[in-house]
Simulated scan of single mutants.
Amino acid sequence: MNQRTPDDGQPTADDVVPRPGLLYFVGRHVVAPLLRLIYRPKVIGTRNVPKHGKIILASNHLSFIDSLVIPMTAPRRVQFLAKSHYFEGTGAKGAVSRAFFTAIGAVGVKRGAGQAAQEALEQSRRIIDTGAAFAVYPEGTRSLDGRLYKGRTGIGWLALTTGAKVVPVGLIGTADVQPVGAKLPRVRPITIAFGEPIDVAHYGPADSGRARRQATDEIMAAIHALTGQELAGIYNESPPANTVERVKRALRPERL
């Protein structure tokens, strides 16, 4: 992807991807071993994660701690997108949140459809181009009932556009460690399984809706094979706020 540059030839602020800071490396080499000692997670298939090249880690999503578990157990540097409100808080709490997510290499994006969704995908592509393993949740948001929801085709677009291999990731038990609403994690058994890399290039170009859908469905099937979750068969999204939103969703051919 060609970066946009100002008149002096330097990348613009929008093109600069935050890299993991000191906290990330402290976490991997100090905190992660301590957490593994406490939680004794079962980690399967780390050899399936290539040491080099463009990689997307596509995972199910059950808990807030998923975004900590994956970087701490993956055998290479991981970056991911995070909700923009983690970076926009005020006061001491906002400063701590902003420093933490910036330090671990998270990139803040606004949730939404249309232009907001496309900008998130473009930022995701920039992260992949840095050589980091990019972690993403194809369901879009965490599952509140434990079922595996239909994948949004943004993951297919990313894989087809960048040529990155997709490593499916299955998380089991993280919802029990920190359920929705819980402020502190509990000690519970968890499993992190990395599946074999998937190359979706044979489905066709990224501008093909059919190719994006087929690529996404293969990725979700691989995640399901790792987790054994009940399949929801629908997208994971909040109920439409009004009739206008209901109509917009009905007319939207696919979800990014």
Rank of each mutant, 00 (worst) to 15 (best):
T191Y: 05
K110A: 09
R77V: 15
P168E: 02
A164F: 11
H61I: 02
A58H: 02
K54V: 01
P197A: 00
R111S: 04
K165N: 00
V169A: 06
L121H: 04
R111A: 04
L171K: 07
D145L: 10
L81S: 03
E139T: 02
P138Q: 10
P179T: 08
T102W: 09
S67Y: 01
A95T: 02
V107F: 12
L171A: 06
P138M: 03
Q178T: 09
I127R: 02
A116R: 14
M72E: 02
I192K: 01
T73P: 10
V107P: 01
T90K: 14
G131L: 11
P71N: 06
E88T: 14
G105F: 05
I190D: 06
G173E: 08
E196D: 12
L160V: 10
V166Y: 05
E139W: 04
K83C: 00
A106N: 10
F134Y: 15
T73F: 10
V169T: 01
F194E: 07
S63Q: 06
E119V: 09
I56H: 11
T174L: 00
G156N: 04
Q115H: 12
F64W: 15
K83R: 15
A103Y: 08
K183F: 11
T162S: 15
S124T: 14
G156S: 03
R147E: 14
Y149G: 09
E139F: 02
D199S: 07
I56C: 02
P189H: 00
R188P: 01
V177N: 05
L160Y: 05
G112Q: 03
V109N: 04
Q118S: 08
I155Y: 01
A58L: 03
A92H: 07
R142L: 14
V167D: 09
A74W: 01
T130H: 13
P75R: 08
T162G: 12
I55R: 02
I192T: 15
G181Y: 09
L144W: 07
G195N: 07
Q123N: 07
G53W: 13
G53R: 12
